[in-house]
């Protein structure tokens, strides 16, 4: 009589276990990966080109210097330049812009750097303290549409806050600074 294998040595047990581990891990890794992917944008906006041609960030996102929100440019602002740019008539992406302007519709941008409801972030003090845009938003000369920074969570904020002067730490580590 063939001695039966113990249950934990049977192939189907091992295959099932392997599959389970794979699914769980894969799901976790996949979920994290997907949540860090840049979203689908209405227009494949080439940040690298615009930044490369010397346009400062604050030209299109002026809110960062005075208030909590940097803001997305109005289509009027885009059109202000683009109606004088020859390529506007040829590029298919720019045709979308032209269509939006023509129909007087706002462009449904999907913000990439967005804090959840329970986090209150204010651009102004950060800009005032000399934090450059790249610190948090990455090097836009290397991106077309904006891509999220991996792991931009509370620890990420605190890492930077903890590097500030010690006397600021009380305020910068205070829960009420961001959560209320």
């Amino acid at each position: 009589m063939k001695k039966p294998l113990p249950w934990w040595q049977r192939p189907w047990v091992r295959v099932t276990a392997g599959l389970l581990v794979f699914i769980v891990l894969g799901g976790a890794v996949g979920g994290i990966y997907l949540s860090q992917q840049p979203p689908e944008q209405p227009i494949q906006f080439p940040h690298n080109f615009h930044v490369g041609s010397g346009i400062p960030c604050l030209y299109c996102h002026p809110g960062a210097q005075w208030g909590p929100v940097a803001g997305l440019p109005t289509s009027d602002k885009c059109w202000g330049c683009h109606q004088q740019v020859a390529k506007t008539n040829t590029s298919p992406e720019l045709q979308k812009l032209a269509a939006y302007v023509k129909n007087n519709e706002s462009i449904p941008w999907v913000p990439v750097f967005i804090q959840p409801d329970h986090v209150h972030f204010n651009h102004r003090p950060h800009v005032a303290a000399g934090v450059t845009c790249e610190t948090c938003h990455g090097d836009m000369t290397k991106m077309t549409v904006a891509e999220p920074i991996r792991g931009q969570n509370m620890g990420w904020c605190l890492d930077c806050h903890s590097k500030q002067e010690k006397e600021k730490w009380t305020r910068l580590s205070d829960c009420a600074t961001c959560h209320y």
Binding site: P39, T74, S106, V110, P116
Partner: peptide
Amino acid sequence: PASRYVVRRPYTDM
């Protein structure tokens, strides 16, 4: 995370 990417409609002319 569901609210991570929400469409925002900016002004056309602010």
